[in-house]
Nucleic acid binder design. Structure first.
Length: 462
RNA sequence: GGCGGGUUGGCGGAGAGGUUACGCAGCGGAUUGCAAAUCCGUGAAGACCGGUUCGAUUCCGGUACCCGCCUCCA
């Protein structure tokens, strides 16, 4: 069996991956808060850990991997959008408008991630379907002294969990020294974080022992991972930005609520995405969504390829130049593998690279080496979610009949061979190239191939 | 202030203590009327300063610079 090694953020070392149960390998990825379109940075963990999902399925069998990625559909930004719509005259209750907004956003998310070639996870739970489980977990935490209720809020007592800060390498005292924590009158300690908060009439809320309210951020992942994967499971993944406080708080909640378990055993974090060397942010004006790129005509497969060219533990820079190069490479490979059946298995070198802490860049280098073996190239690329037939429409040659142009150019060329005046041939060739046609002339004859930028309107008249 | 990541040839980007990464671009050649495409070949690196070592781009320490998290926009 292929030995998979993964960099575990928890231990800061690369470890051999040994699942608790090879019959059911369990992975949890923190999914999106569904308030708007996913931006490009949101897509990196999806693509990176999709490769891990595929690798685990290969090694343990597709039926023996459970991949959970949640939708957080409780959030103040969702509430704000719903309220704005209501004020603008939208029909329905606030709850219905919230539901409509999250349904809409989830559909966008699915469409966008599908376009990137990401497999759907085994389970995609919604936070609002697990409110009861969250309330139960919070109640248990209060009972065991790890949480307390105050003024309609429930807070996690950070000092009650001695390992708090272990994942991110911080101590509670250091963090307080940083003085960037919200101080609130209902907190025993400034580091304590909210498990439950009250909702007023125009906010969504659920009845609870602490009054009508809604869950704080963090608890949904603890509750859902417990319900769906158990008190101990194998892999927990997400962006490095989530390491603190989100994952730290998840660990505190889950380990205190279920001391019999060990929660997640391997923590994987991807580094951040940048755009042309800078952080993507609205203020810099370089903020864009996956859909923006797709709408610009950049195929999802190209985005995926660019992502996989950089190891997931390193910051990744999105540049137009990379997208162009990725497109050229994929176009070449698609031409090379057109009409070829994939080999029964991926190349061992590619599997080995992926098994070595998801060295996708190394795996791509191995793909280049497989250019002489298209069937193997195809099966290997497909293991990484590339060169899938369903994703290749963008690379298909435009369907046009150029036989008349071919014959015309061929005739001109034959005449020029005799007259030695190649000007008419060159003129027609230039016109064809301008129309986006690749012109190949050899002893065998003339061949015209419409390319990416083909424009029938620019074809030279016959 | 605390924690973490990065710095490799023109560009992108890996692995490995000692032998070619790889891709793109460039250059030379084959081929072509000229090109394109394809094929063959090829130059080019490891931020800086120390240390360990027979030998370090690879290990250790330090410096500089860049970036992220600690705060609602990942």
């Amino acid at each position: 069996m292929t030995e998979i090694r993964l960099h575990n953020t928890k231990t800061r070392t690369k470890e051999v991956f040994v699942p608790l149960d090879p019959q059911n390998v369990r992975m949890y990825l923190c999914g999106p808060t569904v308030y708007d379109r996913a931006h490009l940075g949101n897509a990196r963990p999806v693509v990176v850990f999709d490769v891990l999902f595929r690798l685990l399925r290969l090694v343990y069998g597709a039926a023996h991997v459970t991949y959970v990625r949640n939708f957080t559909d409780v959030d103040d930004k969702i509430n704000a959008t719903a309220r704005a719509r209501k004020e603008a005259g939208a029909l329905g209750t606030l709850e219905e408008l919230i539901r409509a907004r999250t349904e809409e956003t989830i559909a966008w998310y699915h469409a966008d991630m599908d376009a990137l070639g990401a497999l759907r996870p085994t389970l995609e739970p919604r936070a609002t379907d697990f409110i009861g489980a969250m309330i139960a977990m919070i109640a248990g935490l209060i009972e065991s002294g790890h949480a307390y209720a105050k003024d309609g809020h429930v807070l996690f007592r950070v000092r009650s969990y001695t390992n708090y800060g272990a994942l991110s390498g911080r101590s509670v005292d250091d963090m307080i020294a940083g003085a960037r924590v919200e101080v609130a009158p209902f907190k025993e300690d400034p580091m304590d974080f909210v498990l439950w908060k009250p909702s007023d009439a125009d906010l969504p809320g659920w009845d609870s022992p602490w009054g009508r309210g809604r869950p704080g951020w963090h608890i949904e992942c603890s509750a859902m991972s417990y319900e769906l994967l158990g008190a101990s499971f194998d892999i927990h993944a997400g962006g490095i930005d989530l390491q603190f406080p989100h994952h730290e708080n998840e660990i505190a909640q889950s380990c205190c609520a279920h001391p019999e378990g060990q929660f997640a055993r391997y923590w994987l974090h991807n580094e951040m995405l940048q755009v042309e060397g800078k952080k993507m942010s609205k203020s810099l004006g370089n903020f864009f969504t996956v859909r923006d790129l797709l709408d610009k005509g950049i195929p999802g497969e190209v985005i995926r390829f660019v992502f996989l060219q950089t190891h997931y533990t390193k910051p990744m820079d999105w540049t137009a130049e990379k997208a162009a190069q990725a497109e050229a490479t994929l176009r070449k490979w698609r031409a090379l593998t057109a009409g070829i059946e994939p080999a029964p298995s991926a190349a061992p070198e590619v599997i080995a690279a992926l098994a070595d802490d998801l060295n996708t860049a190394g795996a791509i280098a191995e793909l280049h080496a497989l250019a002489s073996d298209p069937a193997r190239l195809l099966s290997s690329a497909q293991l990484m979610g590339l060169l899938e037939p369903a994703m290749g429409a963008w690379a298909a040659a435009p369907q046009v009949d150029l036989t008349a142009h071919t014959a015309r150019l061929s005739d001109l060329r034959a005449a020029a061979m005799v007259s030695k005046d190649f000007a008419p041939v060159d003129a027609m060739k230039a016109a064809l190239v301008a129309a986006g046609v690749e012109v190949r002339m050899s002893k065998a004859g003339v061949e015209l191939l419409p390319g990416a930028g083909f424009d029938a309107a620019k074809l030279p008249p016959l």
